[in-house]
Every structure is written in C-alpha cells, then in structure tokens.
Design a protein around this nucleic acid. Structure first.
Lengths: 319, 319
DNA sequence: CCTTCGGTTGAAAATATCTTTCAGGCGTGA
DNA sequence: TCACGCCTGAAAGATATTTTCAACCGAAGG
C-alpha cells in the first residue's frame, strides 16, 4: 500500500487520512490497528503516544523524537499514519484525550467533609453541596406563593424584615436590594425594636420573617404583631409547617442540605434563603421596572466614584 | 510577589498568572474574572476563546488574530494574561476543553432574565446562574492561597474583617461563624471606624478585606493600614489584579457571572464571596478542631431555648 | 561472497508558526 | 490644550514543524 511513489512519501498517507476522522479518543485502538504496518521507529513513537497522551502532549516534535530515540521526521511520519495532517494536530488531539481521561476519573465526591480533608476537597464539597441546595430550593419553591409575595411587595408602602443570627444577614441583603430599587425597606435583628416597629404597621405594609427553623421566637413575635395589625406577612422558612406559618399570608419554603459538624445548618440554609430572597427581589424589580431600572442605574453611579479609578480601565467598568 | 521582571511589559499580569495553575477547564470563569482588567482588543480575543474553544483550538495565532480583528501580539498577550506561557499552550488547553465539553455536554446556556419572564423562569435562571457561579468559583480558587489564609486565621490573635455594601454582609457572615468556633473576629462596615481599628493591629493579627471590584477605597484603606502595621492581610476580590492586592499577603479570587440590569453584580459576587468565606471557615474549623468542635455544639445549645418548643417536632430539630 | 535494490532513518534545509520588539496612535488627566 | 502613558499592530527575531535528501541497513539475487 505504501509502494506507490515511494519517493515523495506522505502524499498518499494524507489522502488516506482524509477519509478517516481526526480520531477523537480511539487513539489507543488505532495504534494497535496500525502497529503492524509501522516501522520500528514509528512503533516506538506510537507506543509512547498511546502510553502517555498527557505527557506527550507537553512535548514538541524534537522532545518526542529525543524521548523515543528517533528523529523529528519519524514523529511526523507517525502522526500522518495515525491520521493527522502533522504532529501539531496529533498533539492537539492528545491534549483533548488527556483532558477527557482526566475528567472521567472525577466521580464527584459527595461525602461529608472530614476533619482531615485536604483543602481542595473542602472547596469541591462545599461548592457541590451549595449547588445541590440551590437546585433543591428552586425545585421546591412554590411559584404561586412567590408570585403573591412579589405582588404584595411591589405594592407595599413599606417593607419590614425580621430575622436574627444568620437569617439577619439575609434580611439585610434583601433590604439593601429593595432599597436600591426605591422601596422603603428595613431589616431588623433586634427582637425588641422589631416588635416596637411592627406595632406601627397596617394594611398595605408588608412584613417578612426569615427563620430557618420556623420556630425562632425573636423572629416570630414581630411577624405576629404585624399580622394582627393587618399587614401582609411573608415567611421564608425551612419548615413551612412550623409556628411561623401561623402568622404568614405567604410561606416561601427554603431547603436544607444534610449537615454535619463541620457544616453547620446556617451554611446551606443561608444559601437557600438567599436564593429565595433574590427571586423576590428580581420579581419586584420586574413589576416595578419603570422605576426600578433607573434606580438600579442611579445607585450604581452613586457608588462608582468611591472606587479608585486607577486600574479601572476603559469607560464602562462592567455596569 | 510580583517582582519577577522577567519579561519587559505586562509584568504584573504575568506574575499573577504564574501563581495560578494553567487552569484545566475553568477557562470561562477565568475569562470573566480577568475581563475587567483587559484591554478592548484582549477582551475580544478572550471572548472568542471562551465562546468557541473548539473553533479557536483549530486556529493558529494569525488565524485567531484575524478572526478577532486584532494582531498576533494581542493574542499572545491575552494568552499570557489567562495564565499560559504563550499561545501554543493556550491552544492545547483549548483542545482539552473542547474535548471536555463535547463529553460533558452540559453547558446549558441560560438566557438573561427578561422583564417579562414568568416567575418560574426567574427562579430557574437565578438558581442556574448561582450554581454556575459556585462552580466557577470553586474551579478558580487557588487552594494554595486558601490554605495559607486558613493557616493565618487559625493562628490569629484577632481577626478584623472589612467590607462595605453587599460585601459587608459577607464579612458579617464570616465574623459570625468564626466567633462561633471561638475566634476573636469582628466585621466592620464603617470606613472610619475600620481604619481606627486597623491602626491597632500588629503581627499575629489578621485583616480581611472583601471587595468585589478590588478597588473600593473604603475597604482598601483599612487593609492598607493593617498591612503597614504588620498584620497578615487577606483579600477576597473578584479582581486579583486590582489595587486591593497591593496590600494583601493572600489573595482569594471570587468569580463573576455575567450580569444584566435585572441581575446586579452584587448578586453573583455575593454567592461567590460566600463560598470563599465558607471555605475559610471550614478550613479553620478543621485546623482548630479540638476547640472548634465543642464550640460549635455549645453555640447550638445556647440558641436552642430561643425556639418555641411548641410545634418543634422530635427531639433534634435539625441540628 | 559480492552486488544491487527497496525501504528505513535521521541530519539539515525550508517553511510555518509563535514570540518579541518597537514606534505610532489614542484616550486620559492636568 | 498639551503632555503623558498605555494600548496596538507591523515587522523582526526565535522556535517549532515539515520537507528534502542522502546515508544506511538488510535481504535477495548474481
């Protein structure tokens, strides 16, 4: 088969290569298939390539030639025989193959975080868990309730948010964002002040309670007062059947991933709560887009000058 | 840190890139992270690369330069910024990425959130985006830096955390958790008080600055003061090349998903920051497990009585 | 045993590709 | 308005890849 026109070799080889695809991952097989028709030197090259794709991908023609004790010409010839236009392309395929192999051997650790886990595992596991929490939350969120809550917020005269501990931070996050689109929103984390504040609410106002357990007294109490004064009440909780639901017109359920000693409940509940809160925010922003849009831009502008302009390149620093 | 001076221009960029590994599949994330610090032309190149890895892998420097309407030099510069020694290596990585994607087949491009999206879509898109942000952050996080930061925290006499706006909440979250395992940690969101506080720090203390933009003056200033007083400083930022890095012993990079009017930067940056902060927390908890374990249990017990026992179901209300 | 021939092999030239240098140009800040 | 600094791409310089070509090896035939 290689007899024809022995001199300007390669040409027929390229032709035969054209018919075959660049070979995605079936490289080892191809090597075995073609090995008999290879010369000694080429076999050495093919062997090296099949044995350590990743390693060879890091080598230049010269490097691979030296490694196999052959010459550059032989390496190129081998590449051609394997179906690539030249070594450059074989090398690219090799890189792809290496990545492929590497990905295959990552079964996505979902085990609990252990005390002696290396830091890289901690990162992977935490990210994995939080992703799971997000997926669960999204799946379990009642969009009807959410829509109703959004409607109430969009029409609210004022919005009061109650939460203590980790949930307080979520409440502040929501308050910050609602303020940014022009709503009158305030987050409370002091139980006494919260109750004092709740007494002033009435129909047309909205009160939001955030509590993972659904039974945090300091959070429930102000919501109860608001409820009894006629305000629209919303509960963001991981236990929709808990005490807090009694005083809530709308209940938004957050989800909880399994926890362990090294991963306190606060961690996944916070992730879940934040997603819910983000949904509320975006929903409200949609409904009040006429005022929210400009307000969002305006609040960004107001902050812009507080950043050092130094390394801020061109005009639009990511709006 | 960035002294190298090996190459004439782009020194800091190369240096910061050198510290990071060549990045296997976290390319899209890296592009987003570094995009703000890129010039227009480089952004075009980066965009092309992130948008069609497979296609770009098939191109030579010249080809990619033409495609993006730039020059070879710019392509090489971009490759360097992304952490590769040159275009050749970027191309190899691209080939690997392409193979990866082909097998994974889960890019799931989510459209932007539109004003008239139904609420269910909003939930799905937000969840999807935050999951993406988490994955990107985990992939782009430098575990060496993280480990070093954890080590510093575990040994710290006291920990001061600086951040304003949305980042302030992240700081508080971290402070809350560190306190829970017995560390002396405090979060500041008032620029003046923060500086006043930073003056008191010295070697053995740790200061953490949290700023997405990397150039928030109110956050950088206290970190600078802490740095100059000999404290160990950590920066959690989306722009590792920004001004804040000047005064940081350890830089932890957060990632950024694309933003739109209805999804302000604060949203994904917060998710990313929280993951980083959680990693810090768990890392510290691991290293100080002897004291952290009991402390975690104790703090839970202390809170238990604040929950209404009424509808609290069985004995262990999700610990 | 020597010769010849087809085929393999590697050194080196030729080419393509990648990298670096350098000067012009553009935007920015004083 | 002007000067400064930084981005930018053209072209030179360095590397890597491909091609060429002659030496070499082994085998078959004289």
């Amino acid at each position: 088969m290689k007899e024809s026109s022995s001199t300007p070799d390669a040409v027929p080889a390229v032709a035969s290569a054209a018919e075959a695809p660049p070979a995605p991952a079936a490289l080892a097989a191809k090597v075995r298939t073609l090995a008999p028709s290879m010369t000694r030197s080429m076999q050495r090259v093919a062997e090296a390539v099949a044995g350590d794709p990743a390693g060879c991908a890091a080598l230049t023609v010269t490097g691979l030639a030296e490694l196999t004790g052959t010459s550059e010409a032989t390496v190129v010839r081998t590449s051609r025989l394997l179906g690539y236009p030249g070594y450059r392309d074989l090398r690219l395929a090799l890189a792809g193959l290496a990545a492929h192999q590497q990905s295959g051997r990552a079964p996505a650790v979902t085990a609990d975080i252990a005390v002696d886990d290396p830091i890289a595992d901690v990162v992977a596991k935490l990210a994995q868990d939080e992703q799971q929490t997000l997926a669960d939350t999204a799946a379990g969120l009642d969009t009807v309730q959410l829509g109703a809550a959004v409607g109430a917020l969009a029409a609210a005269r004022r919005v009061e948010i109650y939460g203590v501990g980790a949930s307080a931070l979520v409440g502040m996050d929501l308050a910050q964002k609602l303020q940014r689109i022009g709503l009158f929103a305030h987050a409370h984390s002091d139980a006494h002040l919260a109750v004092t504040n709740a007494v002033l609410l009435r129909a047309g106002d909205v009160a939001i309670a955030i509590t993972h357990s659904g039974s945090t007294g300091d959070t429930i109490e102000p919501l109860r007062v608001a409820f009894e004064h006629g305000a629209t009440t919303i509960a963001v909780t991981g236990r929709p059947g808990g005490p807090v639901a009694q005083y809530a017109d709308h209940v938004l359920t957050t989800s909880t991933a399994r926890e362990s000693e090294l991963r306190p409940a606060a961690m996944s509940s916070r992730t879940s709560q934040l997603l819910v809160v983000d949904c509320l925010f975006v929903g409200v922003a949609q409904r009040t887009y006429d005022t929210a849009g400009p307000a969002l831009s305006a609040s960004y502008e107001a902050l812009a000058h507080r950043h050092h302009p130094r390394t801020a390149r061109q005009g639009t620093p990511t709006p």
